[in-house]
Amino acid sequence: MDDERLWNFEQSLWTEGADNYREKVDPEVVMILPRPPFAFHGSAAIEAVTSTPVWERAELTERTVSRPHEGLIVIGYHVRAERDGGPGYAAWCTSTIRRLEHEVWRVVQHQQTLALDHG
């Protein structure tokens, strides 16, 4: 997956709905989110993100990409997300994405740490 496609993939997880999560997040995903119970696995992780409102805008900056093994991508970035009429959200994030087959990728790990500038 080239960098442009990679960042579009990740940004879509912030700005598209529940069907997008179910398509792009692996059933065995591990997520660390800034709310109890903090550590989520599998369907509980997918439910935790699908039950939150979709952000209208998400800006991913300070991007870093590592490709430690063929078919495995690790990214880190800062996100500032907004929706009209609501408070913003800012966090430092990591995601690990693995290739299942040609052009089929799934998030297997995601972590968010609230940023001090959280909107």
Rank of each mutant, 00 (worst) to 15 (best):
M1N: 04
M1W: 12
M1P: 05
E4H: 12
E4W: 14
R5P: 05
L6T: 03
N8F: 12
F9Y: 07
Q11E: 13
L13W: 00
L13V: 06
W14R: 07
G17A: 09
G17T: 09
N20H: 08
Y21C: 13
R22H: 05
V25K: 00
D26A: 12
D26I: 11
P27Y: 11
P27T: 13
P27D: 09
P27R: 13
M31L: 09
M31P: 04
M31N: 04
I32Q: 00
I32L: 13
L33W: 10
P36H: 15
P36R: 15
F40I: 02
G42I: 06
S43E: 15
A45V: 08
V49R: 07
V49I: 14
V49P: 03
V49T: 06
T50Y: 07
T50F: 04
S51V: 09
S51Q: 11
T52C: 14
T52L: 15
W55R: 04
W55V: 11
A58H: 06
A58Y: 10
E59H: 06
E59L: 14
L60S: 06
T61R: 08
T61Q: 00
E62H: 08
E62P: 04
E62K: 00
E62M: 03
R63V: 09
T64S: 10
V65Y: 01
S66A: 12
S66Q: 14
R67P: 03
G71R: 02
G71W: 01
G71N: 00
L72A: 11
I73D: 01
G76A: 12
H78I: 05
R80G: 03
A81R: 08
E82K: 02
E82N: 00
D84E: 15
G85C: 08
G85T: 08
G86V: 15
P87V: 15
G88M: 10
C93W: 03
T94Q: 03
S95W: 09
S95A: 14
S95V: 01
T96M: 05
R98W: 11
R98M: 11
R99V: 11
V104G: 05
W105H: 01
V107F: 14
V108D: 03
V108S: 01
V108Y: 04
H110R: 03
H110F: 04
Q111G: 08
Q111C: 11
Q112P: 00
Q112K: 05
T113M: 11
L114A: 12
L114Y: 09
A115C: 03
D117T: 13
H118L: 15
G119L: 14
G119Q: 08
G119V: 12
